[in-house]
Deep mutational scan, measured.
Amino acid sequence: MFYPNSPQTSPQLTQIPYGQQYAMMQRQIQQPYHPFATTEPQARLYPYHYQGPIQQEQGGFITQQSTAASPQYVQMRVTPVDQSIMSGYPNQTANGSSSSSFNYNIHPQQQQQQQQQQQQLRHHAMPVGSVPLQDDRYRKQLIVNYLAPDVTSTDLHELFSRFGELDGARIIYDKQTNMSKGYGFVYFCHAEDAKEAVERMSGYEFHGKWLKVGYSTNPLNIVPSNSSPYVHAGSRGAAG
């Protein structure tokens, strides 16, 4: 039997160049792979992502010199942007860049009308829970959420009447099932009393439920100042 490094198959040491006398086997001759043993700084910083320098080929596509990437890492192929796409944008300079302001050559009167329309939209648009300043009635009506099913309009009136005089209180019921929808409205005579009720009743436990109280901004629920107070009856038909 002959071994790869046996004296019968191995040459004389004098015939082997210096430095390879003890590297006779194939696994010894093959050098191990060192990912950080390279002179390129990109490979030292990113050993798993770097795959060699990027070269520009004919046709405008950018390719990489090395083989496919590892399945664990996804390499994105980048193509140059066609400058003709950006030619339609206004205020574009000769080098292809555009300024931040756009001039669509709008007539001054049209621009003024658009600004007025935007101001009107901001004036009428009102986020949930906010209180408008032009109508004091919005500051007097509250919406009470997360009410228990057994709470009546009379219970709601008695709960909030300790903060001040009320114009009314009612629970909203479903017309088909005649069941409470879980929320109601309270109408105060003074805005200061309503503000105190919002601050003190939010998070209050009532009939096993934690109440959420806020201003009601729905104009359909506003009680006119010259109208008669609501009837605080315990029956659902009268309260709904």
Rank of each mutant, 00 (worst) to 15 (best):
F2I: 11
F2H: 06
P4F: 02
N5W: 02
N5C: 04
S6G: 08
T9K: 15
T9A: 10
Q12D: 06
Q12M: 06
L13H: 09
T14Q: 14
I16N: 07
I16H: 14
I16M: 11
I16F: 10
I16W: 05
P17V: 03
Y18T: 13
Q20S: 09
Q20K: 15
Y22M: 10
M24L: 07
Q26Y: 02
R27W: 03
R27A: 03
Q28M: 02
Q28L: 06
I29G: 09
Q30P: 13
P32E: 04
Y33D: 06
Y33F: 10
H34L: 07
H34T: 08
F36H: 15
A37F: 06
T39H: 06
E40H: 12
Q42Y: 09
A43S: 13
R44H: 11
P47N: 10
P47Q: 13
P47I: 01
Y50F: 09
Y50P: 13
Y50V: 09
P53M: 11
P53D: 12
Q55P: 08
Q56Y: 04
Q58E: 07
G60M: 05
I62Q: 12
Q64F: 02
Q64T: 08
S66E: 08
T67Y: 08
A68N: 05
A68K: 15
A68R: 14
A69W: 02
S70A: 10
P71N: 07
P71V: 03
Y73A: 13
Q75K: 15
Q75L: 00
Q75C: 02
M76K: 15
M76A: 14
M76Y: 13
V78E: 11
P80L: 05
V81I: 05
D82K: 14
D82A: 12
Q83A: 09
Q83T: 08
S84C: 10
I85N: 13
S87C: 12
S87V: 03
N91V: 08
Q92P: 08
T93D: 05
A94Q: 09
N95T: 06
N95V: 04
N95K: 13
S98G: 09
S99A: 05
S101V: 03
S101L: 07
F102V: 11
N103G: 11
H107D: 04
H107A: 05
Q110G: 08
Q111C: 13
Q111H: 10
Q111F: 09
Q112H: 12
Q113T: 08
Q114E: 08
Q114D: 06
Q116I: 13
Q119S: 09
H124V: 06
A125Y: 10
P127N: 12
V128W: 10
V128L: 10
G129T: 09
G129V: 05
S130P: 11
V131H: 14
P132R: 12
L133Q: 06
D135T: 05
D135R: 04
R139D: 03
R139H: 12
Q141L: 01
Q141T: 00
L142F: 00
L142D: 00
I143P: 00
V144T: 00
V144P: 01
N145G: 00
A148C: 12
P149C: 05
D150H: 13
V151I: 05
V151W: 01
V151Y: 00
V151P: 00
T152Q: 11
S153N: 14
T154Q: 09
L156T: 01
H157V: 15
L159E: 03
S161C: 11
R162A: 10
F163V: 03
G164W: 04
D167C: 03
D167V: 02
D167I: 02
D167M: 04
R170G: 00
I171R: 00
Y173I: 04
D174T: 03
D174Y: 14
Q176F: 15
N178G: 13
M179A: 09
K181G: 01
V186N: 01
V186G: 01
A191K: 13
A191Y: 07
A191N: 03
E192A: 09
E192N: 04
D193Y: 15
D193L: 02
A194D: 00
K195I: 11
K195H: 10
K195C: 14
K195A: 14
E196S: 08
E196T: 13
V198G: 03
V198S: 05
E199H: 14
E199Y: 15
M201A: 03
G203Q: 02
G203I: 02
G203W: 06
Y204D: 01
Y204V: 10
F206D: 01
K209H: 04
K209R: 07
W210P: 00
L211H: 01
L211S: 01
L211T: 01
L211K: 01
K212R: 07
K212A: 06
G214K: 01
G214H: 07
Y215Q: 00
T217L: 03
N218W: 01
N218M: 01
I222K: 03
I222H: 03
I222Y: 06
I222C: 03
V223F: 03
P224K: 04
N226L: 08
S227Q: 09
S228N: 14
P229V: 05
P229Q: 12
P229K: 11
P229D: 07
V231H: 13
V231A: 10
H232V: 06
H232N: 13
G234F: 15
R236A: 05
A238Y: 15
A239P: 10
G240T: 04
G240R: 07
